[in-house]
Design a protein around this nucleic acid. Structure first.
Length: 527
RNA sequence: GGCGGCGUAGCUCAGUGGUCAGAGCAGCGGCUUCAUAAGCCGUGGGUCGGUGGUUCGAAUCCACCCGCCGCUACCA
């Protein structure tokens, strides 16, 4: 047996000062689709997520609530994971950067980079806000009109000892890497931004803070803690064993994709690779920067940034409990292009849900199964010898499936879903209307059975292609029949290389007490 | 300020020199009733942001203008 292909993917780690919102969830769902797709296609997958806990803000928030910082972090980590589990995010490990193993990995890494001569002592001079107990950037202060944007007080110029990471020395190496790996930064606009940024010149960055209790101690100078980005980025290697299980680390590194928000592209595409180069480690293969989810205000029609102060925060749990995690996942993957920005509104949500999930997919499922149960008692006799018939004769199913796969691999999820509806489900509904099996059944039972067999075939293909997107619905559709291939073993190729059945096709579901089949997606009645 | 992107039917967008400018959703009309009042068929005259130019011919290339947006070093 040849060694199985590995696939290591990560999402950004989140600040736990507030609960995750739908924008955060968007990223995790997009990553989850990729993880599920790769597993389905035979990869050994490791999917890392986590929280970014070593910041002053987190320590301050804990103090406000009268909690020990670590206890607060653990509590928030639970809350985050509750949401991720409710959304069926299939992560393999959830890292907390307050974990001692992460601390050890960071210290080891920093010592290594220090020993290799890329970290040096210096002085940091900047604008300090007493209220925030932190430095503010020039632009932050300029935008606020010369004061701290939070406290509205003028900052004081302050200097303190620190350690710098020699980022500037990596400019040529970074540009060379971008040149030789055109797919490293995606999508394209982000790549161009990073290249122009790096071309414009890099400054060394201060990677330490002095006099803080919460955080990771600098190994070669215990007065200091490691400053956020240097620490946070390292989760991608400490999460798979760096510093505590070297064998495991070597098994998974480098990452195949880092999924991040577009706002933190530069850290992942410039600082992070430079850090790895400084440590002599391989660089990740791909960084994918997704877009933002905005809220469309139903009254004004205005598109707003998600913000607490605007009061427009939509809780993921609200969508999940009102509808389902499947509907949540579908809306964001279909309606918000992953590489670009998208919008959320309840009315749009209802529209998309009804049109695609209830009326199209769900209704097809219901009408096909009902006919098979009513006229064939759920058993299409003799069908074990049949081949899928003319339902796809007007298209090349293999080409369609491969197109969908290509879109998924490029993280163009909205295009993948669009294809599935346009090339599989819509033709199936049209085929049903053209053949009218509900009439045929009165004249030619076998002909009707053949039509229904083909319609089931389109449901089988749909279930397989939707497996990464709607894991529960896909499984429910698939397990409604006695297909020969086990659901766990199913892969995209099975769509067009028809797995030989050992038995006639049978429906395994039955109507409820009301005589009706339980709908996949009950319609949302508007008003 | 600099660099880059965008502005196409009510909504979301595809279309980058050449048949009458397209798709999905919504809307409207019809057919149908197996199905979740679902489905199918038909229906889109929208200054392709504006002006000027290149060309036999531009939504598609160039210039300028208007409007929106991104990046310009530590916010998902």
């Amino acid at each position: 047996m040849s060694e199985r292909k590995r696939f290591y993917l990560t999402t950004a780690i989140d600040y736990p000062n507030s609960r995750p919102h739908i924008g955060t969830a968007f990223e995790k769902i997009g990553a989850d689709v990729q993880a599920r797709y790769r597993r389905m296609e035979g990869y050994d997958v490791f999917f890392l997520m986590g929280n970014d806990e070593n910041t002053v803000k987190v320590a301050r928030r804990a103090t406000e609530l009268g909690l020990a910082t670590k206890a607060y972090c653990d509590e928030m980590a639970q809350q985050f994971q509750d949401v991720w589990r409710a959304l069926d995010i299939s992560y393999d490990y959830f890292i907390q950067t307050s974990d001692p193993r992460h601390h050890e990995g960071c210290r080891k890494f920093m010592q290594l980079v220090y020993d290799r001569g890329y970290i040096y002592a210096g002085t940091y001079r900047g604008w300090y806000c007493e209220g925030c107990e932190s430095f503010k950037t020039e632009t932050e202060i300029k935008e606020a009109g010369g004061v701290c944007p939070v406290h509205r007080t003028p900052p004081v110029e302050r200097s303190e000892p620190c350690y710098y990471f020699a980022l500037s020395r990596f400019q040529p190496a970074l540009l060379d890497y971008y040149e030789r790996h055109p797919d490293f930064i995606q999508p394209e606009p982000r790549r161009n931004e990073v290249i122009s940024l790096v071309q414009s010149g890099l400054q060394d960055v201060n990677i330490t803070r002095i006099g803080q209790d919460w955080g990771i101690r600098v190994p070669f100078d215990e007065r200091f803690t490691i400053y956020v980005w240097f620490d946070a980025l390292l989760n991608y290697i400490t999460g798979i064993g760096y510093g505590w299980d070297e064998e495991r680390f070597r098994e998974w590194w480098p990452a195949d994709i880092h999924f991040i928000g577009k706002d933190i592209t530069r850290f992942h595409c410039a600082l992070w690779p430079a850090m790895l180069l400084a440590a002599g480690l391989p660089l990740p293969r791909r960084v994918f920067a997704h877009g933002w989810v905005y809220i469309k205000n139903e009254q004004t029609g205005a598109v707003e940034k998600i913000s607490k102060s605007l009061g427009n925060v939509v809780e993921p749990m609200e969508i999940i409990t009102k509808f389902s995690s499947e509907a949540f996942r579908y809306y964001f993957m279909r309606e918000c292009p992953f590489p670009g920005d998208g919008e959320f509104s309840w009315s749009r949500f209802a529209e998309v849900y009804n049109a695609d999930l209830a009326n199209n997919l769900g209704n097809l499922y219901s009408r096909v199964i009902t006919l098979i149960l009513r006229h064939f008692e759920g058993h299409l006799a003799g069908s074990r010898a049949w081949e899928p018939g003319e339902i796809y004769e007007e298209q090349d199913l293999e080409a369609t499936v491969q197109q969908v796969q290509g879109y998924i691999e490029n993280c163009e999820y909205q295009l993948a879903l669009q294809r599935i509806w346009q090339y599989i489900l819509d033709p199936a509904n049209r085929y049903a209307d053209r053949k009218e099996p509900w009439k045929l059944v009165k004249q030619d039972l076998e002909a009707a059975a053949r039509v229904l067999f083909d319609l089931v075939e389109s449901l089988r293909v749909t279930a397989i292609l939707l497996k990464p997107f709607l894991p529960r619905t896909a499984e429910r559709i698939y397990r409604s029949f006695n297909f020969s291939r086990d659901w766990q073993q199913v892969r995209c190729e099975d769509c067009y290389v028809y797995p030989r059945p050992v038995d006639d096709l049978r429906c395994l579901v039955r109507p409820g007490p009301d005589g009706k089949l339980a709908p996949l997606f009950p319609r949302i009645e508007i008003r």
